[in-house]
């Protein structure tokens, strides 16, 4: 599942599934956790899809978006819905956002990342977010029970998207 060190020398896979979040902040780590869950069936998409654990990196991920046809971000999405609710958002919904400039080069800012890609005209044509409503964003390793229970459903969402895209 992890990208090997030779990968970047090859043509990037047309679809990137990018897990974002901090695994040391409990449910914020749902993005990377979802990647682990998806890795069970990763071979099915061999050559088509790259799965990447982006952690909380912001601009540093810019180079990994280039040349992709589609980007699926998996992340924690907070809307006030019950914890464990699975969300699916499109590029249009994201565009309505106004993420702004990060105050620190250290903010793993997905919004800034996407804005920078747009500025360089390197935003993938199709962009989706599959997210899970967090219960707890605080220091700790491991997901809360409702978020953990949501992993199969969130995985299924990603699979459906991949089936449409591939």
């Amino acid at each position: 599942m992890m990208s090997g060190y030779l990968n970047f020398l090859r043509e990037p896979a047309p679809i990137l599934v990018l897990g974002l979040g901090n695994t040391l902040l409990s449910d914020d780590g749902v993005g990377p956790a979802l990647l682990d869950h998806l890795s069970i069936s990763a071979q099915r998409w061999e050559g088509q899809v790259e799965f990447m654990d982006g952690g909380t990196q912001g601009l540093a991920l810019l180079g990994r978006l280039c040349g992709r046809k589609a980007l699926i971000i998996v992340d924690a999405v907070k809307t006030g819905a019950p914890p464990g609710t699975v969300h699916r958002m499109t590029l249009g919904e994201l565009r309505s956002a106004n993420p702004g400039r990060a105050g620190s080069a250290h903010e793993g800012n997905a919004g800034e990342l996407l804005a920078a890609a747009q500025l360089l005209d390197e935003l993938p044509d199709r962009l989706f977010v599959v997210g899970v409503e967090p219960k707890k964003i605080a220091t700790g390793h491991g997901l809360s029970a409702p978020v953990k229970r949501a992993l199969p459903e969130a995985s299924k969402e990603v699979h459906e998207l991949l089936t449409q895209l591939c």
Binding site: N22, A76, M89
Partner: peptide, 19 residues
């Protein structure tokens, strides 16, 4: 001081929220 969580907010105003 931002490092970092990565929550996306659906209302749009808060695409990211950091700890």
């Amino acid at each position: 001081l931002a490092c970092a969580s990565h929550v996306i907010g659906k209302d749009g105003r808060k695409l990211s929220e950091f700890l």
